[in-house]
Amino acid sequence: MKPELDGNKSIYLQIAESIEDDILQNIIAEESQVPSTNQLAVAYVINPATAAKGINILVDEGILYKKRGIGMFVSSGAVKKIQTKRKTAFYDKFIVPLVAEASTLDISKNELIDMIKKEEKK
């Protein structure tokens, strides 16, 4: 769970992403319960409807499901789903700005590849 939300992105998207992060890092395992809308609202001091909007995105994507009368749970296969989704966004979110900044700094393609290799070795 993020300690604090920031102003750069819609609050409900940050709620959804923060739960996804927890699932990817196995802080919340598949088939276990996620915090309720009200718990999220209190934790981040946000309107419960906003928290619900974030949760509902994940329900629509099949990452969470509702157990009637109990609460929201992580679907099995959720990790795979999130990985697939984020891989699609990876290019726009990381590669495009990386190449743009490298070009501004006059870093050649080979230098860039060397940097990636160096980081991989760590």
Binding site: T37, N38, A41, V42, V45, I46, N47, P48
Partner: peptide, 14 residues
Amino acid sequence: RDQFYRILIEDFGM
């Protein structure tokens, strides 16, 4: 102020 916001959200949820 933060205490008020928290109380408000906590109680409004219930």
